[in-house]
Design a protein around this nucleic acid. Structure first.
Lengths: 114, 114
DNA sequence: CCGCTCCTACGACGGCTCTCGTACGATGGT
DNA sequence: ACCATCGTACGAGAGCCGTCGTAGGAGCGG
């Protein structure tokens, strides 16, 4: 290891390549929506292992890949852990208000069903 | 026919039964998003046959059912034709700003890719 | 009554999705 | 050097999804 940024890199779509349908599809899964909400309220990036999800690690990996490939999150390796961050600014520039309204809607629905 | 509202009725979810994940999933399909956009800019309700979609009638029926069962549209029979209307007020009450931001995002993406 | 149009039902097919288990690579600490 | 931890890859299975064709029901107009 020459540096600590020798980390493997992950394929992310450019902002211009992000497709609305893919974002909506990514957010239409309960597990992924939950991940997205957790990221939204967290100040710092979160490691995959920080999430308490009702699925196995294999499935968790799958969901994070869907979120990354759809452009919802950006992932970077940091040692053995992988950090996740919402691509807020980019999504806001592409689809103004969309992410916020989905997050608000998710919170409203949770409150409504509780 | 005793009246012209002898029309068969269709099962719609109550407002309280509408689930965010179902709405997002409904809107994540290009055909259904296109239908939704057309309904949004139309003053009156639109018959299924008014849409020029790249799929057969069978598939069109399927997509309208997904939209109806997810709570995005309300469908009523009017003679032989079936009229479709967005459930704007109900969706706005449940998920404020969501539909508008999706519609705006779809328009933005269309402009961006053109 | 007959036909026309609009839409539906059903079955089918290919493909994608969500899920898992097991086995493995990569990193960092001891 | 070793091992523990974190995440990945791969294969597999069950189920859903989008698509179609064909056949048929419901209503309208003649």
């Amino acid at each position: 290891m020459t540096e600590h940024d020798t980390a493997r890199t992950l394929a992310h779509p450019e902002a211009a390549e992000i497709r609305l349908e893919d974002v909506l599809h990514a957010l239409s899964d309960p597990v992924r929506l939950s991940i997205t909400r957790d990221l939204a309220v967290s100040a710092a990036d979160l490691a995959c292992s920080h999430f308490d999800l009702p699925v196995t690690k294999s499935t968790t990996t799958h969901h994070f890949r869907v979120l990354r490939e759809s452009g919802v999150v950006r992932q970077t390796y940091r040692g053995t852990t992988k950090l996740n961050a919402l691509r807020r600014e980019e999504l806001e520039a592409l689809f103004p208000g969309l992410l916020d309204s989905v997050l608000t809607a998710a919170a409203a629905e949770e409150a409504r069903l509780a």
